[in-house]
Design a protein around this nucleic acid. Structure first.
Length: 651
RNA sequence: GCCAAAAUAGCUCAGCGGUAGAGCAGCGCACUCGUAAUGCGCAGGUCGUGGGUUCAAUUCCCACUUUUGGCUCCA
């Protein structure tokens, strides 16, 4: 039989040749890298016999499919090891995921994470035995019989669903462990060498909090010990950058315990970072035509009934009595901004009308989801609401997206844009008329297209009140975080009956956009801490310059220099501790102070300073004014967005 | 909220039935120093909180609080 290869060539093989045989006949290295095959476009196992005339592509760890097969097989090996150590174990699902795999299991007598080492050792033992992954095609009834015999209730439940689709199924047997599985798998457990179990967690069966909680064991697997080591090193690097570790270490914030969980206490250093961020934010917003406003933290519940929050957001809201009336601690800023919009009759001449506020909101979040600065119960949304006519939508969206990108570029984040649209088969449950949706959804896409931005369209991911654009920011370690979000709202303008007077003298329904560019100041700061690993750019650094007199003889000169820098607006201090220069340099480096000025006898006498930059080392001796120039350069605040717009004209 | 793990000095951790120990940070003294840790000394803890078991609990048990990893949810 003849097999064709991706390079266009082909080769003759005897009947019964497998993909692995074919790979081995081409080169030893290809065979050694092979994890799976693509046969006529379909991913299959390497042990499957090939048919005459197929196109064969060998998949290694460098392909997404190859990685997935290896990870998936590792999850089976994990299950097999668990079954060996805990014979009554019952199995849920065990898929490959980004960076690794997991398996959800009901493990009788499972002692917790202390068992990981033993399970991993058992996995290595089975891997060394080169146990075959055996593919078995069976009918549904046969599969049911096998799983009933094995006592695998969860698998039977899965089979019921597959049976509804009416197919035959495949089982994979690997030694004593037989699993219901679509496959494919690597040929034997010997392909699994470089893995590590990483954590244990609870996971609801089928992700349903009403169902039983299974034990989920996570692991990761690679095709070489180096790749595994690199991955573990990357995790280690991420741990070092963890904002929950760096935050208290650098005196940025503290949280939890007596302070209440999910609530942030900004320490003096953190407050400086926050203030610099907020100052940039405010200046940039004024420049881009936003009216900055401020709204109260509490408001009568009736306001939140009008907005609809009391019915659909109740579980996340804090209520409190004031006199005889029930009040709500605000979970969002929109109703406040709406009252400001409604405070007078609005003309089309003042549109688009843009409001913005650094609005602190409080939301009840389940205790288990709280996480450092990223997920809290009190946070500040850099909220903005744009009120405009239907004609202005495309332009406004474009402006907001480019405004969001301005901030990402200031901090050096990469990004990925997602456009979330309605589900056309289910228009019934959305607020607003289908005509409004039909008008706005293409407008969002137009705006992105017009800017030349790449984006991913996700059907059915829109909020019930409107479509949205989400921007994921990519940090220095390549991790993605939810960043700016731009959401259309067809719901609130109707609920509050928001209108403007058009040129025709009639009242028209206003169009409204919610947008947050940082998302929340807390979360964004957390992202920044991790992105920069605590090494803030000069303008954000809590302390910008440390002056280090070499001995007590230079204390006076150091104080002079410090006073001069402070007069010029720099955050600086003198480290006059009775310690060696090496000790104090080390202290300043660990505090990640961007600039250090060393003043010894030589400098003090000549009006010069020795300059050292964080992470870069000694830069040499400079005239004081030159040194100030270097500091200015290191601490320069970012430029405001270009093409600033003035406020809308007030007629 | 649920599953699992954890909480000892400001930080990182040891001790695990007989009422606590180190390193770093802090303070003091000496040294007066040239680009990431000078030496010596001092001080610092109702061992997260509250119950229980015990002659005796930081140690064992229970509850609560907080944290961590996930699930569900989300800025």
């Amino acid at each position: 039989m003849r097999v064709f290869f991706p390079d266009g060539g082909s080769r003759e093989f005897p009947e019964g040749t497998t993909a692995l045989d074919a790979a081995a006949s081409i080169s030893r290295s290809l065979a050694s890298k092979a994890l799976a095959a693509r046969v006529d476009g379909v991913v299959t196992g390497l042990s499957e016999p090939l048919r005459d005339g197929v196109r064969l592509e060998v998949l290694g760890f460098d392909s997404p499919e190859g990685r997935e097969v290896l990870r998936h097989s590792a999850s089976h090996l994990l299950a097999s090891a668990v079954l060996h150590l805990y014979p009554g174990a019952r199995f849920g699902v065990g898929p490959a995921i980004e960076d690794g795999f997991y398996y959800d299991m009901d493990i009788p007598g499972f002692p917790g994470s202390s068992a990981l080492e033993a399970i991993e050792a058992e996995m290595h033992r089975q891997a060394a035995e080169s146990i075959r992954f055996e593919r078995i095609e069976v009918g549904i009834d046969e599969a049911r019989r096998v799983m009933t015999d094995l006592g695998q209730a969860y698998k039977l439940e899965l089979l019921d669903e597959i049976a509804a689709a009416g197919e035959s199924v495949t089982l994979y047997r690997c030694g004593a462990f037989t699993d219901l599985c679509r496959g494919p798998h690597v040929p034997t457990t010997a392909f699994l060498k470089h893995f590590r179990l990483t954590s244990v967690a609870g996971a609801y069966w089928r992700g349903d909090e009403k169902r039983e909680m299974l034990t989920r064991i996570y692991g990761t697997v690679f095709d070489s010990s180096k790749a595994l080591a690199d991955h573990l090193a990357m995790l280690e690097e991420a741990r070092k950058r963890d904002h929950r570790k760096l935050g208290p270490e650098l005196g940025l914030f503290t949280t939890g315990n007596e302070g209440g969980c999910g609530l942030i206490y900004w320490l003096p250093n953190g407050t400086i970072v926050r203030e610099e961020l907020e100052n940039l934010w405010k200046a940039a917003h004024r420049r881009n035509g936003y009216n900055l406003v401020s709204t109260p933290h509490i408001a009568p519940a009736s306001l939140w009934e009008t907005s609809g929050h009391c019915s659909y957001y109740r579980d996340n809201m804090y209520f409190m009595p004031v006199d005889e009336t029930e009040y709500v601690l605000k979970p969002m800023n929109c109703p406040g901004h709406i009252l400001i919009y409604k405070s007078e009759k609005r003309s089309y001449r003042e549109l688009p009308f843009r409001l913005a506020e650094l609005g602190t909101v409080y939301r009840y979040e389940k205790s288990g989801v709280l996480h450092g600065l990223m997920r809290v119960r009190g946070f500040t949304v850099d909220d903005g609401h744009i009120f405009c006519t239907p004609d202005q939508i495309v332009d406004e969206i474009r402006k907001v997206v480019s405004f969001a990108l301005y901030f990402l570029q200031v901090f050096g984040f990469g990004y990925a844009i997602e456009l979330s649209l309605s589900d056309p088969d289910d228009m019934g449950h959305y607020a607003g008329s289908p005509e409004m949706w039909a008008r706005v959804e293409p407008a969002l896409a137009d705006a992105l297209d017009g800017m030349g931005e790449k984006y991913r369209t996700v059907r059915g991911e829109a909020a019930f009140y409107g479509p949205k654009i989400d921007i994921k920011l990519r940090d220095a370690l390549g991790r993605y975080w939810q960043g700016p979000t731009i959401q259309f709202d067809f719901n609130i303008p109707e609920r509050f009956d928001l209108t403007y007077t058009g040129p025709d003298g009639g009242e028209h329904r206003i169009y409204m956009v919610h947008r947050a560019l940082f998302g929340s100041v807390e979360r964004f700061t957390g992202n920044l801490i991790e992105h920069f690993a605590g090494n803030f750019p000069g303008w954000l650094a809590p302390l910008q310059v440390v002056i280090l007199p070499l001995t007590v003889q230079q204390h006076e000169r150091a104080a002079e220099v410090c006073g001069m820098l402070a007069d010029r607006g720099f955050r600086c201090s003198v480290d006059r501790r009775n310690e060696t220069i090496g000790y104090r340099i080390r202290a300043a480096e660990s505090r990640k102070v961007p600039m250090m000025l060393v003043i010894g006898e030589r400098e003090a006498g000549s009006g010069r300073v020795a300059v050292r930059a964080h992470g870069r080392g000694d830069l040499g001796v400079f005239e004081l004014e030159e040194a100030v120039g270097l500091i200015e350069e290191a601490c320069r605040r970012p430029a405001l967005p270009e093409g600033g717009r003035s406020l809308s004209e007030i007629p």
